[in-house]
Design a protein around this nucleic acid. Sequence first.
DNA 1: CTGCAAGTTGAAGTTCACTTCAGCTCAAGC
DNA 2: GCTTGAGCTGAAGTGAACTTCAACTTGCAG
Lengths: 147, 147
Amino acid sequence: MESLTIGELAARSGVAPSALRFYEREGLIHASRTGGNQRRYDRAELRRVAFIKIAQQVGVSLDEIREALASLPENRTPTKGDWSRLSARWRHRLEERIAVLERLRDQLTGCIGCGCLSLQRCKLVNPSDRLAGRGAGPQMVLNPPGD
Amino acid sequence: MESLTIGELAARSGVAPSALRFYEREGLIHASRTGGNQRRYDRAELRRVAFIKIAQQVGVSLDEIREALASLPENRTPTKGDWSRLSARWRHRLEERIAVLERLRDQLTGCIGCGCLSLQRCKLVNPSDRLAGRGAGPQMVLNPPGD
DNA sequence: CTGCAAGTTGAAGTTCACTTCAGCTCAAGC
DNA sequence: GCTTGAGCTGAAGTGAACTTCAACTTGCAG
């Protein structure tokens, strides 16, 4: 038993078969086929699926995950080194994310509790990541009295 | 100027007018109306919107946010104490979330890099909360040999 | 008092990440 | 050989969180 059926991979990874098919359509994982057109997964796919789940935990979109996975070699099973490089990249993201949340935590009670929860003085509300897309950012009208 | 138009609230909070209307439909924020049916927001709504943004950062759904906001008094403007209670609750969530991510960070390189990225030995893959979407939960089949 | 940016509505559209469905085929145990 | 559960496909559906649209009204500056 060196390859897995979709049901087995699903059971092992905790990802539904429908999601695995979806990931395949989206180019995130790969499967070979039996004569009868059923998917067979190499064990290495388990690691890919695990990676996907972890990245999702960190809040990364499937698009970005695909991009990251695309940097793995296609012609051979990824080595320890390959995975290390990848995980180092995510580690960085993860650390940024943690830092944001810690800043949030440290200021939360103070800011909401004290009534100072102003959008000027607290930076809590303006995320350092992607929400800056809309021009809302820090173009605050200054000094509203009492707030 | 003690009440804000939707445009002003949008500019101040960094949330689009369409989102503010959406939040109102969803019962997250409230507005009074002018004779001409335009929305006017009390300054206190700024705090609600800020709270919503923060909670979203932490990964809480609008449903839960509404629930939390519902615990604020309806008959009066929330006091410092009211907000403190609420933020204390979220602080807890936030700390859990941070703990999860830190665990992730500490194990990431080791787990992915070393090839041990098994779904049994690492707990990375089984979220302790439901932040990043609807997971499959911890229904692992145990002990698959070699992985 | 007029012009026009800003506001109003309900309905429909969008993106993400999947799930569900219908109708079929495959594969393994008895 | 037959049954039964697992798997296949494309298409459509789901839910969260909004955005966009069209058609219309308000309200403030000049």
